[in-house]
Amino acid sequence: MTTMTQTATPHSVRRHRHDSIGDKALRTVRRLPALLTIAFLILITGYPLVWMVINSLKSNSDFLNNPSWALPETWAWENYATAWEVGNLATTITNSVIVTFPSLLLIVVLGTAAGFALEVMVWKGRGGVLLTFLSGIMIPGQIIVLPLFIVFFNLGINGSLLPLIVIYTAGGLPLTVFMMATYFRAIPREIFEAATIDGASILKSFVLIGFPMVRNAVITVAIVQFFLIWNDLLFALIFAGQRRLNTIQVGLLNFSGEYGAINYGPLFAAICITVGGILVLYLFLNQRIIKGLAAGAVKG
């Protein structure tokens, strides 16, 4: 923000010197392409979402017989109830929550501890281990899924959500460890050394000093991983294919293939509910989410 303010000032100062009515009109005309671009951006981002909401409130015959951009003839709010019931949304949302939050907790705890051990502590070979973690970012899910399926099958846990929690935890570690190591790099090692002089064990200084100091980074990491896990489709399809295990993504896909294929309103309503949950989160946390996801990319 501050940088942008600085850019803006010199211009306005220079411009004000030659200000006249003609200049003002000219400037509006010159800003026209920019204004049109903004209008275009708002339209192509926002309108599909508005269109989706409009159509979630139409009856089937209304959807089939009238232009899709027209408002509903009668507002079919019952589509949302139908979507919730038939779409099994209570179950799928519960499953997604059961899978996502334990994974997030494990990722954050394990990843922060590992990042601390790799960046703050001093030992031979830590660079190599960090690189090993980092290389995990590149690994496609397809190369690890079959052996895992075999193992989980033999362990007899393929009928539960446990495989997903294990996979999401491991899959989230590479980026998290790397990001946490980068954040710890910014903290002077002397702080931890001073703590140990005062008699704290290194574990204690991690829990009482290190972890609180990277609290913001932990939230960033958790946000990045939340979206990766919540929106995952590949592993969810493979390990949560049974109806009672469906996560929200798999459930939505199945709903669109079966019931939703001919019941347009409820399908749109189900999409709206899925999008709506994320929208609420986004309304409160948008700047945090944007910064967090961008940080995840730059650090990765």
């Binding site: 281990v129 935890t169 931890f192």
Partner: peptide, 22 residues
């Protein structure tokens, strides 16, 4: 800061999960 036991305790779980699952 080079205490092997502490390193094993902090790094161990993450490294184990990462190695076994990926």
């Amino acid at each position: 800061l080079g205490d092997p036991k502490a390193i094993a305790l902090l790094l161990g779980p993450a490294l184990l999960v990462y190695t076994l699952v990926m």
